[in-house]
């Protein structure tokens, strides 16, 4: 395993993925990290330390978000990679794919407002004992944008109770003052959930886009904290 600062990132490209280059620029230009693309038909992930399933519309979101991508050849290798403790981050459509692949529990429904929503939201950091959040402070409020039509997280009560008990809820939508109000919830997500991790904490899914706010000229640099956590 490489040391933290030498993390080699791999960004998976499915047909229809459209935030792959954004993640590449954030990591390459913004963080100076080594990063390469992985075509969805590749099955050899040797040499990568952190795999990113980026945002977009893999397979056009046809059938259901992430439902087709989970059958792409690369996903077998990604599942093995995660099982061996490899770092696996799903952003937006990537989170949806992780849910469909069963690498994280729960499912995404259509936003309660029935429309796509693209805007900056506030996120409260709920867990800092993950490789993705260790540079953050618990309870801190981050400004990171969302852009999705299906971000309304749902799981049955037992699963959500499990997530709470094991501190797997990593981010919650909140008001600027950190209150997790209904008004601050942009999509109707259960318990204002914006991001969760697996029990082993090496797999995380989040709907907001940290790669969209890595360079301050774009309005916020709070997304850097995710990369700082990984690279720190």
């Amino acid at each position: 395993m490489a040391t933290a600062t030498e993390l080699h990132f791999g960004i998976v490209v499915f047909p229809g993925t459209n935030c792959d280059t954004d993640a590449w620029h954030a990591l390459h230009d913004g963080m100076g990290a080594p990063v390469d693309y992985i075509w969805h038909e590749d099955t050899d992930l040797t040499g990568f330390d952190c795999i990113i399933l980026p945002g977009g519309f893999s397979y056009g979101d046809y059938l259901r978000t992430g439902a087709v991508a989970r059958f792409s050849p690369v996903m077998g290798a990604v599942t093995d990679f995660a099982a061996k403790g490899g770092l696996l981050l799903g952003i937006c459509n990537g989170f949806q794919i992780l849910l469909e692949a069963g690498l994280l529990p729960g499912a995404m429904m259509r936003n309660v407002g029935q429309t796509f929503v693209c805007k900056y939201v506030n996120l409260r950091v709920e867990a800092t004992d993950t490789p993705y959040t260790r540079a953050m402070e618990k309870g801190a409020v981050l400004r990171i944008p969302i852009a999705h039509g299906e971000g309304n997280y749902y799981a049955d009560e037992a699963t959500v109770e499990d997530l709470r008990r094991n501190h797997q809820i990593v981010f919650r939508y909140c008001a600027p003052d950190g209150q997790t109000t209904a008004e601050a919830n942009p999509n109707g997500s259960l318990d204002n959930i914006a991001g969760i991790c697996n029990r082993e904490r090496n797999v995380m899914g989040m709907m907001p886009h940290p790669e969209r706010c890595t360079d301050p000229i774009l309005g916020s640099a709070d997304g850097r904290l995710v990369w700082d956590s990984l690279l720190g």
């Binding site: 459209n18 935030c19 280059t21 954004d22 620029h25 954030a26 230009d29 945002g55 429309t115 796509f116 929503v117 693209c118 805007k119 944008p145 852009a147 886009h209 790669e211 969209r212 890595t214 360079d215 000229i217 774009l218 309005g219």
Partner: peptide, 27 residues
């Protein structure tokens, strides 16, 4: 309307919809 459009993807949008004009960076 604007919130239904993804106006940030490609991470070039320096000034978002709502101003007199949109501003884009050329990486």
């Amino acid at each position: 309307a604007c919130h239904q459009y993804d106006h940030m993807v490609q991470t070039n949008t320096v000034v978002a919809p709502g101003a007199d004009a949109a501003v884009l960076q050329l990486k």
